[in-house]
Computed example of a mutant assay.
Amino acid sequence: MFQIDLVEQCKTNDRKAQVKLYRQYCNGMYCVAMRFLNDPNDAEDVLQEAFIKAFQKMHQFKGEVTFGSWLKRIVINKCIDFLKAKRENLVTLDEGYMHIEDETDWYVDDGISIEIVKEAITRLADTYRYVVQLFLVEGYDHKEISGILDITETACRTRLLRGKGQLKELLKKENYGTGS
């Protein structure tokens, strides 16, 4: 069965089609949730909530992007919402003082594994971690990230650059060495 047919059947609340679509995407979306949450139980909970929301909002899927991309955005938003709710103290960032720096002034040594970088990303402040993860790991561009996080593209670029700077310092502290 073609994916678009499956999606159309899900729009009519066809439970068998929903199960097929769930099985098709659950493993990949679980990996996305784990990259954000780093806890299997939290990832499973958020994943279930994301699928429920996706099935409830299925009528809003217009096919402008792939179903997987549409679902991934729901999963990411649910992960961010979960992390925000879990956090006790919110720190506001006055973006009026931010400025954009040169994006070409940073690289990671080829000897550093992706696992080490991903682990270091989890230690960034939330403000920077979300942007860095969405950009470097999930592959979203500044426009998409600004839409997901409801920030300006300028703030997105600045947070990415500052997040990369923090990431660079974390990797230096771990003696993995980065160049500037």
Rank of each mutant, 00 (worst) to 15 (best):
G28K: 07
Q56D: 04
F51S: 02
K86F: 00
R35H: 13
A17T: 06
Y130A: 09
T104M: 15
C31Q: 15
I145E: 04
Y97S: 11
Q166E: 10
N13A: 11
L47Y: 12
K78G: 10
Y25K: 10
D141V: 08
F61M: 00
R87W: 02
Q133I: 15
K143Y: 12
R123Q: 12
K16A: 14
L6M: 08
E88C: 05
M98Q: 06
E8Y: 03
E138N: 03
Q18D: 04
D5I: 15
W106H: 11
T122R: 04
A33P: 01
I114F: 11
N38R: 12
A85D: 08
T154F: 12
H59R: 00
E44N: 12
H142N: 09
V108D: 07
T12A: 00
I121E: 05
I76Y: 02
Y22Q: 04
L90P: 14
K168P: 06
I116Q: 00
C79H: 07
I112K: 03
L6G: 03
F67L: 03
E115H: 04
L170N: 01
I116D: 00
R123E: 12
K20F: 15
L47W: 11
D105L: 13
G147Q: 09
D81C: 02
Y140P: 01
A54H: 00
M29F: 15
L167I: 05
M98A: 07
T178L: 11
A43Y: 01
Y22T: 09
Q3A: 09
T92H: 14
F36P: 00
N89W: 13
Y25Q: 09
Y107R: 14
D102W: 06
A125P: 13
I151Y: 03
K20M: 15
T104A: 15
G179K: 14
Q166H: 09
Y97H: 12
G147K: 09
L136W: 14
Y130V: 08
I74A: 02
R35C: 13
L21C: 02
T127Y: 04
Q60E: 11
L37H: 05
I148A: 04
T66W: 07
D109M: 02
D14P: 13
F55S: 02
Q60A: 12
L160M: 04
L161N: 08
E119K: 00
K53H: 03
K143P: 07
G165I: 08
R87H: 06
S146T: 09
F67M: 06
I76F: 02
E153K: 06
T152H: 05
R162M: 14
M1A: 12
N77Q: 06
S69L: 07
F55Q: 01
V131Y: 07
E44I: 13
T152L: 04
E8P: 00
C10P: 03
T92I: 14
E88F: 08
S69Q: 07
G165R: 10
V32I: 04
K168T: 10
L37K: 08
